[in-house]
């Protein structure tokens, strides 16, 4: 399965364009990116810089037009649709800007969804989802529908769902984008804690304060990496 010691995520020369011929628009123009196990990195860039497209590719939702991409030792580009689904299920926990909870399901049921597709039995699903919700501090509101919760609580639930199947990579797309700054801070704190527990975290944002939490910052501009800096110690 995953190569022992190798980077968790390794992308080489990623190109992505939309349209053909005259109408062809280059979005990614040769991205090289490698993220080690246990790293916490932020990908920053203005809207239109191509970071959303990069996120889709790194999240195995989209394929590049050119280049190679390995995730946890799998050659992602060679996989069929079904295998990509399995890879997303096993390796990636998604956190979205707009939470993306399923409205007709309760918080607990939402958290159980990845386990459902992983084929985990009903009883185990329940226990694992509860544990994950307690981890993010939502153990007391599991029967509520998403709309009955505040934005911060919804994002916590979404994080609980992302973590429930214990994937190595947490992929967060503007996790604080729909939250006020105070609530945003608590969510970022939660993500920091998860990183401290040894999880690999990749956050995509245009917000400097969000990026400041990550020891590694990758700046994207016009489809290329403009800078890739690491801080040694955060004070």
């Amino acid at each position: 399965m995953s190569d022992a010691g190798g980077p968790l995520l390794d992308a080489r020369n990623l190109h992505r364009w939309y349209g053909e011929g005259e109408a062809r628009v280059e979005v990614l123009r040769g991205i090289d990116l490698s993220v080690e196990q246990g790293e916490y990195a932020a990908i920053v860039g203005a809207s239109g810089s191509g970071k959303s497209t990069l996120l889709s590719i790194l999240g195995c939702l989209d394929r590049p037009g050119e280049g190679t991409y390995r995730l946890a030792g799998h050659d992602v580009l060679s996989l069929r649709d079904d295998k990509l689904s399995e890879l997303r299920l096993r390796e990636i926990g998604f956190v979205f800007q707009s939470f993306q909870l399923i409205p007709q399901l309760s918080i607990l049921e939402n958290t159980e969804v990845p386990l459902f597709y992983a084929g985990v039995r009903r009883g185990d699903r329940h226990a694992k989802a509860m544990a994950s919700l307690e981890r993010v501090g939502l153990g007391h509101r599991v029967k509520h529908r998403p709309t009955e919760l505040s934005g911060g609580e919804q994002q916590r639930a979404a994080i609980a769902r992302a973590l429930v199947h214990d994937p190595p990579l947490l992929l967060a797309d503007e996790p604080t984008g729909n939250l006020d700054s105070e609530t945003g801070r608590t969510i970022l704190q939660l993500i920091d804690d998860l990183h401290d527990e040894g999880r690999t975290v990749l956050v995509i944002t245009h917000d400097q304060t969000v990026a400041d939490h990550a020891p590694r910052r990758i700046r994207i501009m016009d489809g290329t990496i403009e800078s890739d800096r690491r801080r040694e110690v955060v004070t």
Binding site: S85, E86, R90, F96, Q100, P114, Y117, A118, H165
Partner: peptide
């Protein structure tokens, strides 16, 4: 969401 989380087409 379901697809992103890991649901296959057949699911």
């Amino acid at each position: 969401v379901r697809r992103a989380i890991g649901a296959k087409r057949k699911h």
